[in-house]
Simulated scan of single mutants.
Amino acid sequence: MKTSIIISVFLFTIFSSYSQYNFEPSKENPFGKYNPKAPKQLQDYKNLIGECNCTSTSRKPDGSWSKPIKMLWRWKYIMNGTAVQDETLKADGKHSGSIRQYDKDSLQWNVHYYSSATISKTLSTWHGNKKDGKIILYKDQKAPNGTDGFSRLTFYDISNKGYKWIGEWVDKSEKVAFPFWKIECTNSI
């Protein structure tokens, strides 16, 4: 009797600890699930969750556009469905990713970027929100000539079929924009 009570308590402890992580990636939900206790803004990325086949094109130092590179962009819910992580796997071997958390105090996204091409001691961070169907993120950045401005990253044409992304340097008024990277994605699932 005593042994069966100990076993029952042990099994209850194991299963209840697993159930507290219901929103993590699993066999049934390989990209995790949105946790309803998380900020509703996590749903900004709901059409991006999963995998997309993409084409990435960036500016070369001479200002011309490079040849398009094939890329897989994978998105999932992390931290038990309270944040979003993405990673890119590029055919050229330069991979990158981000961790995306919505800050309920500042009412904005905090996006922390990392890359295999340049390992940094601190991660670059963009901030922003979804507006008019686009997710727009900013980071202070000077132009090569020293002009104050932003690195602006925009997800647009977002649907269950895919999305587009553009990275641009913009001046503080956002009247001058210089695109430096663009990506087009189609859902692979």
Rank of each mutant, 00 (worst) to 15 (best):
M1H: 14
K2I: 15
K2E: 15
T3M: 12
I6M: 14
L11N: 11
L11E: 09
T13D: 09
S16R: 03
S17Y: 09
S17M: 10
S19R: 03
Y21L: 14
P25S: 05
N35K: 09
K37M: 15
K37A: 15
P39F: 04
L48Q: 13
G50Y: 12
G50T: 08
T55H: 07
S56G: 02
S56H: 08
S58I: 05
G63Q: 11
S64H: 14
W65G: 11
S66E: 12
K67E: 15
P68V: 06
K70V: 02
K70E: 11
M71G: 01
L72M: 13
I78C: 06
M79P: 02
M79N: 12
N80Y: 11
T82M: 13
V84K: 01
V84Q: 03
D86T: 01
E87A: 01
T88Q: 03
T88C: 04
L89D: 09
D92C: 00
G93M: 05
K94D: 04
S96E: 08
R100F: 01
D103M: 03
D103A: 01
S106I: 06
H112T: 06
Y114F: 10
I119H: 04
K121L: 12
L123C: 06
S124W: 12
S124H: 11
W126H: 11
K131L: 15
D132H: 06
D132Q: 10
G133D: 14
K134L: 10
I136K: 11
K139I: 14
K139R: 15
D140L: 12
N145K: 05
N145S: 07
G149V: 01
F150R: 01
D157H: 02
I158E: 08
I158C: 10
S159M: 13
K161V: 11
G162Q: 12
K164D: 05
W165F: 08
I166E: 07
E168D: 02
K172M: 01
S173C: 00
A177F: 00
F178V: 07
W181D: 04
K182I: 01
C185M: 08
T186F: 08
N187P: 03
S188W: 14
